[in-house]
Design a protein around this nucleic acid. Structure first.
Length: 466
RNA sequence: GGAGAGGUGGCAGAGUGGUCGAAUGCGUCCGACUUGAAAUCGGAUGUCCCAAAAGGACCGUGGGUUCGAAUCCCACCCUCUCCGCCA
């Protein structure tokens, strides 16, 4: 939320800054604000008189005046008149306040002075690339396969059955596929917690107030799944619950910065994206994500933003996945952000980079919506802190990138080195000693026999104490 | 889901119609006493609106009654205890 006081005092500057993002006219807001303030002055004067009357009546009765006497009755009469006037002004003022609030909640954050201008994603700016040497080259006559083909062939994931269970744009991970997902988020959480982020596991259903505080509501209602009976929504990102961890709080300045990370499923309706990325793990209604989140002192938020991006990059580097960093231009900036870096990972099948992380500085925009402030001990007053969030990383897209970048000519997929400790085989699953993801395609009669033998063998191993 | 209790300042906790933004205790800060500390004593100590003074708002939230509501009425939310159900 923008600061109404700022809009009042620096109208032209704010209008210009907002103009860099799109077509916004703040003039109506300014007029409403002016009307509201005039009404407020009137109203509080009436209120003062009303308070005076109330006190006078009390005092006189206490001093022995007849509660039904003429003096008291006259005061009461005046009190009633004041009340009648207030009854007229009050709804007007509330209405104005409501209108102002509605407009403010619908305005996006101001872009940072350093955010490049641009109309849409085509004008984003590439900052740097990493890992060109890891870009896989297709052998002659055998183009690199898309991740959904690899995944389905190895039996790691299944879309058809997911549509049966839920709808299209859902996935079920199976066997080593599920294990890979688990390895990925465990690896990421381990990294982040080592780097000082406190792991949180928040509720995945959030209420309207929480979604409003982080900026998803009221403007992006159609993007979230809603549980209409309960004032609850399926969280579209851990950014929502984590922002609201400290909603309506005043934190001691010495507690800052607070760094959190959270692994959560994310639910998005993806309304308006029909026809885009209909295959694979790129755009699902439900996906898992590890999120990093920071509550920081305003003076440090730019530096914190850089380290946030670095922490996300560290994951891609550890996985040896080629990527590039781009800075979003004003036209592509998210609603709550004043500056955003996206990490895009190399997807060999499409021969292009795809977004895998988005790291934003929200300045005090969310803090103001959520009323999250800090207080310096011994100093008067409070200040809004700054919030930052970044994916570190989206798990499904990371899996897609791993499957594609680590695919082998023989149809198997190598496990990235840093994940191997997480996918270490156990005695009971000797098959995994290969360190490769290998799963049978849908069973034929012949493989059923194999399956039977394997199962019997495993049962035997378990029996004898393995 | 059923029954009961309750939501007040950083915390504990009083306050059932009037001078209550709110006793008291604890905590915190400043000062005095002390070589220093403890103890003791004195003072201060919430947030928001308004450029500020004045003024106004805030006792879970939203309505209502009243000249006047922390206090009475209604609805909702939340917490706790017991019962039921359940991983």
């Amino acid at each position: 939320m923008l600061d109404l006081k700022q809009i009042r005092q620096n109208f032209d500057d704010i209008q210009a800054a907002l103009g860099r993002r799109g077509d916004y006219d703040l003039a109506p807001l300014r007029d409403l604000d002016q009307q509201q303030r005039e009404l407020e002055t009137q109203r509080s004067q009436l209120q003062a008189r009303s308070n005076e009357i109330g006190k006078a009546v009390g005092q006189q009765i206490r001093q022995g005046a007849d509660p039904k006497g003429a003096d008291i009755l006259a005061l009461r009469e005046e009190g009633n008149q004041v009340k009648a006037q207030l009854a007229e002004l009050d709804p007007q003022e509330k209405d104005l306040k409501g209108q102002i609030e509605a407009i403010l909640l619908g305005l996006p954050n101001l872009p940072s002075a350093t955010t490049p201008d641009g109309k849409d994603e085509t004008e984003n700016v590439e900052i740097r690339r990493w890992g060109d040497e890891y870009i896989p080259q297709a052998p002659a006559g055998a183009p690199l396969k898309p991740h959904w083909e690899i995944g389905e062939a190895l039996g790691l994931l299944n879309f058809e059955r997911s549509a049966k269970i839920a709808q299209s744009r859902f996935v079920t991970l199976i066997g080593q596929g599920a294990a890979l997902e688990r390895a990925l988020f465990t690896f990421m959480l381990d990294r982040h917690t080592r780097h000082g982020y406190t792991e949180v596991m928040p509720p995945y259903l959030v209420n309207t107030a929480s979604l409003t505080a982080s900026g998803q509501l009221p403007k992006f209602k159609e993007e979230s799944f809603q549980c209409k009976d309960d004032d609850l929504w399926l969280s579209p990102t851990a950014e929502v619950p984590v922002t609201n961890l400290h909603r309506d709080e005043i934190l001691p300045a010495e507690d800052l910065p607070l760094h959190y990370c959270a692994y959560t499923p994310c639910f998005r309706r993806e309304a308006g994206s029909y026809g885009r990325d209909t295959r694979g793990l790129i755009r699902l209604h439900q996906f898992n994500k590890v999120e990093m989140y920071k509550f920081v002192h305003p003076d440090t938020s730019e530096a914190e933003h850089q380290t946030l991006v670095a922490d996300a990059e560290a994951i891609l580097q550890a996985l040896k996945l080629p990527y590039r960093v781009i800075e979003l231009c004003t036209g592509d900036l998210g609603f709550s952000a004043n500056k955003t870096y996206d990490l895009e990972v190399w997807m060999p099948s499409a021969q292009t980079y795809r977004e895998i992380s988005s790291c934003s500085n929200c300045g005090d925009f969310q803090a103001r919506r959520a009323s999250i402030r800090f207080k310096v001990a011994g100093q008067k007053g409070t200040q809004f802190l700054h919030t930052l969030n970044g994916s570190g990383l989206a798990i499904g897209r990371t899996m897609a990138a791993v499957l594609e970048n680590y695919q082998q000519p023989d149809g198997t997929v190598k496990v990235p080195e840093v994940l191997q400790p997480y996918l270490k085989p156990t005695f009971r699953t000797p098959k995994c000693h290969t360190q490769e993801l290998r799963l049978k395609p849908l069973q034929t009669g012949h493989s059923r026999l194999l399956q039977f033998i394997l199962t019997t063998f495993r049962t035997f191993l378990t029996r004898i104490g393995y």
